[in-house]
Structures are given as structure tokens and as C-alpha cells.
């Protein structure tokens, strides 16, 4: 996944005190995203690539680039698997 991403148009997002809630209007499922996850999602939907988002996360949270890439890859897999986020093609 080296491209950019966009939020599925069928998903409603509401920011909360501890992150965000995402509601998939077609499936009726809703999800909780923690603060770090919401920060990453915001970067991705604002045009950051996976690599750029990892660099931002590593810088903000003082973690290694490797850890940041791994955590973002896991988050992306979850978001795409749930059809909340889609890759621009």
C-alpha cells in the first residue's frame, strides 16, 4: 500500500473525546478508533501516504520508524478490511 486513501463515502465519522466513531451506513456496523488511530486516519485522508503517516507517527510519539510502519500497516489492514477506508487507484 504505497498510494493514498479516502474514507468510504458510505461511512459517517464522528469525533469523540477519545478518538472517533465510524458508522458504516450500508452494513450498519460501527467502530471505535482511538486517539492515535484517528490522528493517523486524518493524515491518510488528507493525502498522506502510508510512509508519510508512519514518519509523522514516529516523530510525534517518539517511536521507531519500524514500529510506526508496523502499527500503521496493521491499522490500515483493519480499516480496509472493514471497508471503512479505500485506496485511491
Amino acid at each position: 500500500m504505497s498510494g493514498t486513501f479516502f474514507l468510504n463515502p458510505q461511512v459517517s465519522l464522528a469525533e469523540t473525546d477519545d478518538g472517533a466513531v465510524l458508522l458504516h451506513e450500508r452494513t450498519g456496523r460501527y467502530w471505535q478508533l482511538n486517539t492515535t488511530g484517528f490522528s493517523v486516519l486524518r493524515g491518510l485522508t488528507n493525502g498522506q501516504t502510508c510512509e508519510q503517516a508512519a514518519q509523522t507517527l514516529a516523530s510525534q510519539c517518539a517511536i521507531s520508524d519500524t514500529r510506526a510502519r508496523s502499527d500503521i500497516a496493521a491499522l490500515l489492514a483493519s480499516l480496509c478490511s472493514a471497508d471503512l477506508l479505500r485506496e485511491c487507484r
Partner: peptide
């Protein structure tokens, strides 16, 4: 403190 990004299924309606 670092909290890894996490997505949690809450439910459905």
C-alpha cells in the same frame, strides 16, 4: 505514553 492506533468493532444496528 504511546498508545498504538487501534480500531475496535463496537456493534451494529
Amino acid at each position: 505514553g504511546y498508545e498504538p492506533p487501534a480500531l475496535t468493532a463496537v456493534g451494529e444496528f
